[in-house]
Amino acid sequence: MSTNQSLLPARPIQRETGNIASDMNGEKVLLNVNKGKYFNLGEIGGVIWELLEQPMSIRSIVDQLLSIYAVERATCEQQLLAFLDQLLDEGLIFMHDEVRD
């Protein structure tokens, strides 16, 4: 199901409530209680999921990931946006209305 939303870089994003997360062999697995669906976010997806406990801008997430992983900023940002779009489509994250740095 698509929400027809798209991510706006200036808007902070945060994870939705109603998901049970568990670590399995270094990967993050989620159960969405409302839909009864299970997701595997993988290792890096799990790191991103943990960061989204608080509202964060995409720039802030990229900065955090660059401090942990050996990757170019442009590559990181492009792949992060694609991943976050998937999370948004599944209703696992939401965008805040206000703009933050």
Binding site: F39, L41, G42, I68, Q79, L80, F83
Partner: peptide
């Protein structure tokens, strides 16, 4: 030393 980057992907698990 930084960790190796992998493309993050969302995988839907089909568990009944």
């Amino acid at each position: 030393m930084k960790k190796e980057w992998e493309t993050p992907k969302l995988e839907v698990l089909h568990i009944k």
